[in-house]
């Protein structure tokens, strides 16, 4: 005949399992998985399975959480290639891009990892070699075509404050209005997310083969036929 407190302890197990199931963020779920492992070890030990409790604590809690943390850390990331040591005006432009980009990626539980490259050729080569998921260029050549909406007014409003200290250096360099940074993406899903959720004025998006049209219309056509 079991004591009454055993039933109360056993009720903790489905409670913590429910907490784990309704989590959406992977890192929060990892911590809740640790809590579930601790409660499960308690239940197993009290019900007499000392060996099962020990295995649950060693493998279920310690090993699996560590392996899952490493897996989530290396997979849920967007690696963005940037040029190392830009000019101060371009640095402020880049910072104004990274803040909304991080906000959008946080909604999908993705991290943004910046990888610095010394010159534009290395940047392009890294994208071709699939070392990064996308590259960000602030200083693309003036001869390239730019969309008609590019002007100083399209920059995010919070940039106006940060760009004031670096205004003289930017004005004497070329005097032309700053264009938004250009992000070239290799992964179609990232392109879809960023085109739909990133404010259009903060960056100019394109896929690896120079395509600027959204990827969804061909998919809809494929579904129709």
């Amino acid at each position: 005949m079991m004591d009454s407190y055993v039933y109360v302890i056993m009720a903790l197990l489905p409670l913590s399992a429910l907490m784990l199931v309704i989590q959406t963020s992977p890192y929060q779920a990892l911590v809740i998985r640790g809590i579930l492992g601790a409660v499960a070890a308690l239940v197993y030990a009290i019900l007499g399975g000392a060996d099962v409790a020990l295995t649950e604590a060693l493998v279920g809690t310690m090993l699996s959480i560590t392996l899952f943390a490493v897996a989530v850390r290396s997979s849920l990331v967007m690696r963005l290639g940037v040029l190392v040591a830009p000019e101060p005006s371009q640095e402020s432009l880049r910072q104004s891009l990274l803040a909304p980009l991080r906000m959008v990626l946080n909604r999908y539980h993705l991290r943004l990892e910046l990888v610095a490259y010394p010159h534009p050729e290395a940047l392009q080569q890294a994208l071709q070699a699939k070392e990064v998921h996308g590259i960000c260029r602030v200083d693309f050549p003036l001869g390239e075509e730019t969309p008609a909406r590019v002007s100083s007014t399209v920059i995010a409003p919070d940039l106006a404050l940060t760009a004031i200290p670096s205004l003289p250096s930017g004005a004497e360099s070329d005097g032309s209005p700053a264009a938004p940074p250009r992000i070239t993406l290799r992964v179609p899903r990232l392109y879809e997310i960023l085109t739909t959720e990133l404010p259009p004025a903060t960056a100019q998006l394109q896929t690896l083969n120079g395509d600027r049209t959204p990827l969804t219309p061909p998919l809809i056509l494929m579904e129709k036929y």
Partner: peptide, 15 residues
């Protein structure tokens, strides 16, 4: 379990 739980916590916190 008391010692192993603390070790798991340290590993997870470090990551």
């Amino acid at each position: 379990i008391l010692s192993v739980g603390n070790a798991a916590l340290m590993l997870l916190a470090h990551v």
